[in-house]
């Protein structure tokens, strides 16, 4: 696009970023606003909505539920992702494209389809809905992300490194402990953080599959109906955003450290 000057592209990029950040910037603004009506002009600064969150028991329950779901999802999907990423980065086997394609399918499948399909199966099997059914659905959609992160970690791991360790007299377990694990560990942690964050934010599957125990997004959904609750929701959203961003920065830093350790160019890996 050289015929369009760089100046106009830059202007466009700035406008686009404003578009991207418009809702994100509003979130803290209204969270600290004294008025319960979510509209301009702002009426004054307050932290009462944040303080209020501290005393909302239903929120704490929802948060606890989300933590259970998020942590379990992160552990299981990272484990499943590690198996699949290792297999696809290291080995050739029949049907590989199809198998990997099937595992990555939830990435493009509408979440409502995943949710509805699981709901139908659980109903048919007569299994009650609970936080664990939510975990089941979340693992499904988080595993592809884990695979994407860990694949780049495993690809950077030259197979000759493991062979060299083995050749130098180390056992398979010793090779895993002394070579493989240190080299992919940052990727594993990065995967744990990202999958946790996705699970924490996920609404559609949680909405369909949860029973009486609600997760945080389902709680937010229920609160959106009550105008008086909106400022608290804004405050909650602000906290969630801050936590997500912190986790992401951590994940990105770890991923880059892993790439640097493996001597890989960091600009493109993992994108």
């Amino acid at each position: 696009m050289k015929w369009i000057s760089v100046k106009w592209l830059t202007v466009y990029a700035v406008v686009y970023m404003i578009f991207l950040y418009a809702p994100v910037i509003l979130l803290p603004l209204f969270a600290f606003n004294t008025s319960t009506i979510i509209a301009f002009p702002l009426s004054g600064f307050t932290t009462e909505w944040f303080v209020g969150l501290w005393y909302t028991d239903t929120l704490h329950t929802a948060l606890g539920n989300s933590m259970i779901v998020g942590v379990t999802t992160a552990l299981v999907s990272t484990l499943l992702g590690a198996f699949a990423a290792r297999a696809s980065a290291r080995f050739a086997f029949p049907g590989k494209t199809g198998i990997v394609g099937l595992i990555m399918l939830p990435l493009v499948l509408p979440e409502i389809i995943v949710a509805v399909a699981l709901l139908v199966m659980l109903n048919q099997l007569g299994m009650p809905l609970s936080l664990w059914t939510v975990v089941g659905g979340h693992v499904l959609i988080c595993t592809p992300f884990s695979i994407a992160i860990l694949s780049s970690a495993y690809r950077g791991l030259d197979r000759e490194l493991e062979e060299a360790s083995f050749d130098l007299g180390e056992s398979r377990w010793g090779t895993f402990r002394r070579v493989t694990l240190p080299l992919v560990l940052p990727g594993v942690i990065s995967s744990l953080l990202i999958t946790f964050t996705i699970s924490l934010d996920e609404f559609i599957i949680a909405f369909f599959l949860t029973g009486t125990d609600v997760t945080l997004p389902v709680y937010i959904w229920s609160q959106l109906r009550f105008p008086a609750k909106l400022p608290s929701v804004m405050a909650l959203g602000t906290i969630l955003l801050a936590v997500s961003v912190l986790l992401l920065i951590l994940a990105e830093a770890l991923r880059r450290r892993s790439a640097a350790r493996q001597g890989v160019d960091t600009t493109l890996a993992g994108v």
């Binding site: 030259d158 000759e160 490194l161 062979e163 350790r261």
Partner: peptide, 10 residues
């Protein structure tokens, strides 16, 4: 073995 990529543990 001396590997083709040298396989120096990074």
């Amino acid at each position: 073995m001396v590997f083709q990529s040298y396989a120096i543990f990074p």
